[in-house]
């Protein structure tokens, strides 16, 4: 795909992510019997945060938050230009590690525990993405995401179990129940706000924007399972998104040990089974 398209994609991603976040809040409210905020409420929130006095605990934190945003944008660029999927996974991991480091750079115990959990979440979720890269290689003979468009058949047809594993880590990445462990949109948690406890003003807004980009990235990964025709993929991604919102509302938050066990047990199991089945 063209360079112009990728740049446009990167610029549009925060807006798309913000709208999706707003939609999430609206649907969640309706599921709970509430009226809910307007769909563009997330933008109001972020604009307000930009207007706040900007304070930070130390310079490292600022650096890591910018790194989080930039690496996230980089990951999106790699994905939109359909580059090597493995490199994309590394970029995504870098971005998340930056967030965890931003949490570690402060002295707040809440933020430290949140960062600990963030790292465990990365450990739990990234392997499935690596398995997805491997599946991509098995299907198309290369790690290039562009290969999918030449495949002629959707990835979902041969790798339904890996799709299930990706849905599992989607819950982790979107920070929703039962895995809203390190930082959730609902501040009611045993560790206050987790990683973002010590973020404020502009830097909180930046981390929020990075999170929107992450949302777009993760839905794009779901889209990759059915790229031709493209609208089926988009419907698939939206359906997965709606399913996540419903799941968020019918589960309690579970514990970190349970999350790692599930993500490794089911995520690894399903992925390996699928790959074995495919190669046989």
């Amino acid at each position: 795909m063209s360079f112009a398209f990728s740049v446009a994609g990167i610029l549009a991603a925060p807006f798309l992510g913000g709208l999706l976040a707003g939609l999430d809040r609206k649907i969640t409210a309706r599921l709970q019997g509430r009226k809910g905020p307007p769909i563009i409420q997330p933008f109001y929130d972020v604009i307000k945060l930009f207007g706040k006095e900007s304070t930070y605990t130390n310079r490292h934190q600022v650096f890591y938050i910018y790194a989080y945003l930039l690496w996230m944008a980089m990951a999106l660029l790699l994905l939109l230009t359909l580059q090597d999927f493995l490199v994309f996974v590394f970029a995504l991991t870098f971005a998340e590690i930056s967030l965890a480091l931003a949490g570690f750079s402060t002295r707040s115990p809440y933020s430290h525990i949140g960062s600990n959990r963030e790292i465990l979440q990365i450990l739990a979720s990234e392997p499935v993405l690596v398995f997805l890269a491997f599946a991509l290689y098995l299907a198309s003979g290369s790690f290039m995401a562009g290969g999918l468009f030449l495949l002629g058949e959707p990835l979902l047809r041969n790798f339904p179990l890996i799709f299930a594993a990706v849905l599992l880590i989607l819950t982790i990445k979107m920070r929703k129940s039962p895995f809203d462990l390190s930082s959730s949109a609902h501040a009611h948690q045993e560790i206050v706000r987790g990683v973002t406890t010590e973020f404020s003003g502009r830097y909180l807004a930046l981390s929020e924007i990075a999170h929107w980009v992450e949302l777009v990235i993760i839905l794009f990964v779901v889209f990759l399972f059915w790229v031709d025709p493209w609208w089926v993929g988009i419907l698939l991604a939206l359906a997965a998104y709606l399913a996540e919102i419903v799941i968020d509302n019918i589960f309690a938050r579970l514990k970190i040990s349970w999350m790692v066990a599930t993500a490794w047990g089911w995520g690894f199991g399903l992925s390996l089974l699928n790959i074995l089945y495919f190669t046989m």
């Binding site: 969640t28 019997g33 129940s177 609902h186 009611h188 968020d248 019918i250 589960f251 938050r253």
Partner: peptide, 16 residues
């Protein structure tokens, strides 16, 4: 109590 273990929708229903 529902909110303490992160079950927001149940929390809303109880209060309703």
């Amino acid at each position: 109590y529902a909110d303490a273990f992160g079950f927001e929708s149940l929390f809303m229903q109880c209060w309703r």
